[in-house]
Design a protein around this nucleic acid. Structure first.
Lengths: 206, 206
DNA sequence: CGCGTTGGTGTCATTCATACACCAACGCTA
DNA sequence: TAGCGTTGGTGTATGAATGACACCAACGCG
């Protein structure tokens, strides 16, 4: 089992997050519950491997993907495990495969194999931290979105309610937003103005 | 050359920084200039490998070490390269080996092999960013230090002069500092009070 | 047409960040 | 031994950012 020659050298793991009412992560039901894992192929890039792992397990592609941390791989039968987290709006996640579903990060200890728990936990921390200074919240939204939707993302990831007026002031000051001319009629209430993310690439993603 | 069996699967690279007047990183002179690199041994942990790489090249041990990023390894003849950055006060760095020296991060493009440049650059960015919210500045200082020394670290890493009084207010408010009863007489001027870092482990280092 | 629901707006108080100048304690040297 | 040069150490006043807070608008539905 620990034969060094037969051991695939490097694995990638992907924790995919989305927001549907609450923050959820993608989980493979097999056995105890696992995240999508891929073994690095010769000549393959690490990020490509992670995307392939996600695609193979779920059919999902073209998500926001960022490296999280690289772990020792001993107990997983690899030499190293490069963990990624991925973000996507739930509309773009057409999961129609058996054994693939969503789970609550708060219940990670009961729903996930032990080696993968730390990945989801650290990803949540990173998410909450990065929310303040990087435009990651938009990754959970469609191309055009309302300020109400955006605020919901902030509240869910940051785990606290926010004041509506202060939030809007912050967002308008942040210069990431572009107001469109359209509104969305959603329910039995006043239509909401639609915004989109300013397309300038926001610095580095490392 | 790209024989998959003979290729060491994983390398670690370490960018060691210290402050002597200016911020400097440790560089091996061989060829174009390189950072210390190690090949992961079977059963060895990643961080252990990085420490071993640093020790082998320089004889330095027991430094602050933190993972930076994991790169594709193709062009370096590996499958992946796990980069670390290390911090230490210069007094603890007894380098007495040929071909090991210090260099200015600003001149990285002329002093370092191309694949390693990005590591030093990203480490500098991370350092400057983390300075604000994590107690990393202390890693450049001895166990006991003066506020003048601490401010110098902040100014060098943050690349801007700071107001003395505002800085001291910030530091005292940060609750990382413990005032000792001792002072240090250094030059032809008033002795400086010595401080040390409060020993509570400050959250996670990921 | 009235109700329920979400969208949208401004002000005031507090906190935080910034700018700024002087005396203290020592070593050195004349 | 007196003066100078050097770094250590302290408080205040002003502007900026943040946090708390309440009401009307526009729509769908019954």
């Amino acid at each position: 089992m620990n034969d060094t020659n037969a051991m695939p050298a490097i694995h990638t793991v992907v924790a995919l997050f989305t927001i549907r009412e609450r923050l959820e992560f993608l989980r493979l039901d097999a056995e105890r519950g696992r995240l999508p894992v891929g073994a690095l192929l010769p000549g393959e890039g690490l990020e490509a491997c992670a995307r392939r792992a996600l695609w193979t397990a779920t059919g999902i592609e073209d998500v926001f993907l960022e490296q999280l941390y690289t772990f020792d791989g001993e107990q997983a039968g690899a030499q190293a495990i490069v963990a990624y987290y991925a973000l996507a709006p739930c509309e773009r996640l057409p999961i129609r495969r058996p054994g693939v579903g969503w789970a609550d990060p708060a219940e990670v200890t009961t729903l996930l194999a032990e080696e993968h728990q730390i990945i989801v936990q650290r990803a949540c921390e990173r998410l909450a931290g990065k929310l303040e200074y990087a435009p990651i919240a938009y990754q959970f939204l469609a191309e055009r979105f309302t300020l109400g939707e955006l605020q919901a993302v902030y509240e869910i990831i940051g785990r606290q309610a926010l004041d509506k007026r202060n939030f809007r002031r912050r967002m308008h000051a942040s210069a990431h937003l572009v107001e469109t001319r359209d509104v969305r009629r959603n329910g039995p209430h006043r239509p909401a103005r639609l915004y989109r993310l300013r397309d300038t690439q926001p610095a580095v993603a490392g």
